[in-house]
Amino acid sequence: MSQPVLEARAVSKHFAAGRSTVRAVEDATLALLPGRIVALVGESGSGKTTLARLLARFYAPTSGEIRLHGEAVQGKPREYYRAVQLIFQDPFGSLNPLHRVRYNLERAVKLHHAVRSKADLDEKVVELIERVSLAESYLDKFPHELSGGQRQRVVIARALAVEPKVLLGDEPISMLDVSIRLEMLNLLERLRAEDGLALLYITHDIASARYLCDDIVVMYAGRMVEGGPKEDVIADPLHPYTQLLIDSSPDPERGDRNNLFDAEDLGEPPSLIDPPSGCRFHPRCPVAMDICRTQAPPRTELTDGRWTHCWLQEKK
C-alpha cells in the first residue's frame, strides 16, 4: 500500500466562544492516499468542515498534527497550498465576481508556477478549462453568467491550477441542482483516475458518498465514530450512530413505507460547548451501557481496514 499524502494525527480544534470553548473536532485521525477517495460523512455540527479546514490549514490545530508526505507541517507555507486545495460548498461565493473566468484561473497559475510567457499562460488556462469539460469560450465570461454547475467546474479548474496532490471537497455538490450533481461527482472520479489525486469528499449524503468514494469515515459531534471500506460500512454498520444515519437516509428501494417513518424521537445532537461525557452519542444511543456514559470509547481496529469507537465492539 502506498504512503499517505496527507494525514491528520489525533487533531483537535477548539474555538473560544466567549468564556466557553467549542470542542469542534476532538482526536481525529485520517489518512488520504494517492488515487483514493475518502468520504467524510456527518450531520451539520459534526465537525466535518472544521476537519477539512484543518487539513487545508485554514486553522492550526489546537493539538495533534497535520502531516504532508510524512512530515509535520508548521505555519502556512505556500508549498502546502501547492499540494492541498480546498473546494468550497458555495460556487456562488468562491469566485471573484468582478473578474472573468480567465482572470480567476490565471491568478492561481501565476501565483504558483513560473510562467515564462503570455502564450504559456494562455495554454495553461485553456488546458485547465478543458479538463473540467467546459469550452474555451467560458474563459471570457463573468461568474454571474454561469450556472451553478459551471461555476463549480471553474472552482475545480482553479484548484487544479496548482497541480495539487490532494483535493478537499467540502460538500461540493450540495448547492447544485440535483440533475447535475452526478456530472460533478463523475468529474472528481475522473480526476482521481487521471492524476492519482487523493480526494476527501465531505458530505451529509451517504448515498453520494457510496457512489464516489472508496472508504467512508463517519463523524458525530466532533468525533470520528466509524470508518472502513464503503460497502462494509453501509451494509453492516458497527456503530449505532452509523446505523441511525443509514436508516434515516432516503432510500426509495426500501419498499415498506409504513415502518419507515416509525422513527423514534431520539432528540438532537449535543452542544459542542458542553458535550456529553463518555461517548458523545450515548444520550441518543438505543444500546447505551453504563461505561458509555463515563468513558470515551477508544479506537477498536477490526479486520479488513474497519475501525470504530464504540464500547460494543471493544467488549467483544
Binding site: 450556472s147 454547475g149 459551471q150 441542482d177 440535483v178 440533475s179 447535475i180 450533481r181 452526478l182 456530472e183 463523475n186 451517504i206 448515498a207 453520494s208 457510496r210 457512489y211 453501509i234 451494509a235 443509514i246 437516509s249 432516503p250 432510500d251 426509495p252 428501494e253
Partner: peptide
C-alpha cells in the same frame, strides 16, 4: 427518469450514473 437516476442508490449495485447533462 433522469431525475430518478440522479440519486445514487444506497444499497443496490452501483453503476455509473450521468445525471442529466445541461442546465435547467
Amino acid at each position: 427518469r433522469g431525475l430518478r437516476d440522479s440519486f445514487p442508490p444506497l444499497r443496490s449495485e452501483l453503476r455509473t450514473l450521468t445525471g442529466i447533462p445541461g442546465s435547467p
